[in-house]
Write a protein that binds this DNA or RNA. Structure first.
Lengths: 247, 247
DNA sequence: CAGTGGTCTAGACCACTAT
DNA sequence: TAGTGGTCTAGACCACTGC
């Protein structure tokens, strides 16, 4: 009836130790991809614990993608999807990132328009249904030097207050991050040689290699914002850390 | 003593419905960032279920980063870290990706060396402790046209079989993905204008904008591989999808 | 149809910490 | 010290599915 711990304070909890054990067997190759993991009943007996404890472990491992669970069949070490891997990529807030690298951040609003969505523009296709869009172009500078050019569209229907914000003082990305929540985002990352117009604004020769991040966010089915950021490629990096299984 | 379901088969399980409810309150703004979520006891009473059920929900939400839990203090809606966001980025397998886009994939091994690690080379610093490294350079082609140039170092201590693989037939990235597991990876993504040597191999003018992915993987503390892939920027995109909270 | 995972209960003990 | 989350137990019922 009572529920005494196996040991008073195992430092690492029981389900953590079980998880470590199973992960160890998988990573060491002792349990290769496709290998059938003992059933919950078997593990329960093996570790001398309640079924719920091993069940929790296996559920977490399944969430993390390390194992697959099938009713009646059992749990199996996941075959790593051979063609796709996911990494957690940090999409940084530019002002913060610049400051973190010890540079002075500045921001310039180059253009602001509240206008109808343009037809035929791929970037604006998502927003075609809206009456108006708020279009902003701005420049991010680090130590007085241009770092990135940002073209942003904001859907006023999703962020009504945005229309009244003075974006000459606040970077729109930072403002949105703090004031508008979203439920889905998509990013495309590519490289371009900058066209003449952008080159002039970035004060580099036409054709200079730049990193392009295109980001779209939605709140439910409603588009919130769509932004294209063009970074000077040699002065900006994206960094992704990853441990497989998400944890 | 018995454990009847609240309703026979609620389609969506109870903890899922509770989770949806709480997520709804958070996303709708009804529970803004910093808001204190009712305690497990209160939620237990509110939903008429066992404490473990709401506990599971809150644990999952905490794992997903949507809430923060503090002993004695309670659970709180997480303040979105204003300066960093994480997205799940797909790091594709090049052969697969090319095929998926309907192109013919080809692969050329340009160079293969089993040699001592070079001192003074930043890329090889991690491998400096190793007796030998396997260095490969290869070219990925789509429809006979160069798509990406790959410089890869493999640590034979972590992947002994790699030394005997005929990489003129198998792309090393695909082979590694299928044969060697790893526990940690780091990626850097940037843009460069290609130098003359790479430009020649990629059959483009010097200075053409390219997307660079640098990827390092470890197995435990042991480095496994380090690869630099230079993509023609206009013919390659990385795509990241994201829903906040990780699910 | 028997075994598996999925879920839930009604408790319990514990560590931690804000008050 | 009282309230909170963290963990665990020893059951239970159910849906599903591969044998």
């Amino acid at each position: 009836m009572s529920a005494p711990q196996a040991s008073p304070a195992p430092a690492r909890s029981l389900h953590q130790r079980i998880r470590d054990d199973i992960e160890g067997r998988i990573h060491s190759g002792q349990w290769p991809p496709g290998h059938r993991i003992p059933s919950e009943h078997a593990l329960m007996a093996q570790y001398g614990c309640a079924r719920m404890t091993v069940s929790k472990v296996l559920s977490l491992l399944a969430d993390a993608g390390m194992i697959e669970r099938r009713r009646r069949a059992g749990s199996f070490v996941a075959r790593p999807h051979p063609h796709i891997e996911q990494v957690a990529l940090d999409i940084p807030d530019i002002p913060f990132e610049v400051a973190a690298r010890g540079h002075r951040y500045q921001f310039e609003l180059l253009a602001r328009q509240l206008r109808k969505p343009r037809r035929g523009d791929a970037r604006e296709a998502e927003l075609a249904g809206q009456a108006r869009v708020l279009a902003l172009q701005c420049l991010h500078l680090a130590d007085e030097r241009p770092l990135a050019l940002e073209d942003r569209l904001i859907n006023p229907a999703a962020a009504p207050q945005a229309v009244d914000v003075d974006f000459s003082q606040t970077a729109p990305g930072s403002w949105l991050l703090q004031h508008v929540s979203w439920t889905r985002a998509e990013h495309r990352i590519s490289a371009i040689g900058v066209d003449a117009a952008r080159a002039r604004l970035l004060q580099v020769p036409t054709g200079t290699a730049c990193l392009v991040i295109e980001r779209r966010t939605w709140r439910g089915e409603q588009p919130v914002t769509c932004v294209t950021q063009v970074f000077l490629g040699d002065s900006y990096d994206l960094v992704a850390r990853f441990s497989p299984g998400g944890r």
